[in-house]
Structures are given as structure tokens and as C-alpha cells.
Amino acid sequence: MNIIVCVKQVPATNEVKMNKETNTIIREGIEAIINPFDTYAIEEGVRIKEKTGGKTTVLSMGIPSVADLLKETLAVGIDEAVLLSDRTFAGADSLATSYALSKGIEHIGDYDLIVCGKQAMDGDTAQVGPGLAEKLGIPHTTYVRKIEEINDKYIRCQRMTEDGYDIIEMPLPAVITVVKEINEPRLPSLKGMMRAKRAVVTVLTAKDIGADSDLCGLKGSPTQVVKTFVPVHDVQSEMIEGEPEEQAEKLAKKLLSMQFNTSDSTEVI
């Protein structure tokens, strides 16, 4: 079974500090890492391949230096790495990203399953997986927490929902996006690391994959960011003092005086 895992490079921390005087964000020494959710996608891809045979390929769209990160995935069992890198792709929203990745996948060809992370730590939209499936004209299931069965014909998996899970069956090829419950990613092995060091990442441009530049990058992105700001939490905190008994009593009073109903949760406040 041939599996393509989509991975995105993200800044290692998504912490944003505010400079109070200038009202701007302070960011220093930002290291780039593989989107944490994508490490579960990689692990799942490798596990399926170990069971069924075939090949695993990681695919990413990003700046040239992403190639080094992709090499790391070869140390944990991925067979090949492909990077779509071209200024034409820059500024893509999730639609343009889905399009570019779909062209990359068609270029790689001969795939049975595409695995994405649940969402990227920076953009946080969770839209690329489903968007990509649609561009490829194949079915998808999001938030997969377990694969119950997979063979040449179909996959049956558990999709996580707010109050449990659905069991979904769909024919291959298909796209799944995975949540962290699905597995525990392995650590690299020494031999894997050696192999990764020597590996070559295939870098492709928009032209190489036959992508229409009108549909890529900023040009192909219907959404536009017009403003950004750092949220301020201006809560008024009240510390409740006293001996534990007093504290509990005072707090209960306060909540109850906010018409906090203790018996019927639908009627609160």
C-alpha cells in the first residue's frame, strides 16, 4: 500500500508575547519543527506500511529549508520525501494549499491513502485535509483516532466526535486526518538517522507538478488576513481569602448568587 503523509513546518512555539509599550508581538529565536499533529500522521503511515508493505512518502509545501525537516521523517521509517517549494506557492490559504498539495500528490501518483494531521499549530484551521480530498475527488474522514481495518479496497476507522466516535468505512484511495490519540510516535533509530542524513529530498516547483499558478499562493487564495492583534484577557480576578471552610462557603455563595443552579445545569445564570 502506498501512503502519502502531508506534513507542515510550523514555528516551534506558538506562544506570542506582547511588548506592552509598542503593542507588538515579541518573538525571538523561532525554531521550525514538524507540526506536532503530523508526527502522529507519520507514525500511522509507517505502521500501516509495516503491516501491508508498500511505500511511504512525506509531502510538504514550504520554503526550501523544510527539506531538512523532511529528512528527519526518514529516520522514523518514511521512505521518501517530496517538497513543493516555489515562490508561486507563497501566501496560500487553505484552499490554495489544498490545490497545490493535490497537484503534488497527483504528480507522485499511485497512492492508496493520504494521511494528514488534525490541524496545523500555526494556521490552526484543520481545513487542508478535507480540502485536499475534495480536490482529488476522493473521500475523507477527519479526526481519526483508530484504524480498525485497512486493506487494498477500503479503510474502516473511528472518527472522534464531541461525545464519542463514529465508525466510518470508505473505499481507497482516501484521505484521513488523525488526532493524537491514534498512536504514540516512535523515536528515530540510529540507522534511520544515518539513512536520513544521506537521503535526498525531491524538490518540485509549481511547473514541475503542472499546477496552475492562478490557483496557487496568494493569487489562488480567496481569504485575506486584514488585521492581526494579540488578545488581551482583562479579567478582574478576585481572590477569596480565609480558612478553607470560609473560602468554600464564600465561593459557593458567590456562585449561587449568580443564580447558579445546582440541580439543573441547563438553567444556569
Partner: peptide, 9 residues
């Protein structure tokens, strides 16, 4: 590489 991997573990 060995040191890094051992440190990670």
C-alpha cells in the same frame, strides 16, 4: 547523533 538520540530517549 548518538548523543542526541540518547538524550532524546
Amino acid at each position: 547523533m548518538i548523543k542526541e538520540l540518547a538524550a532524546k530517549i
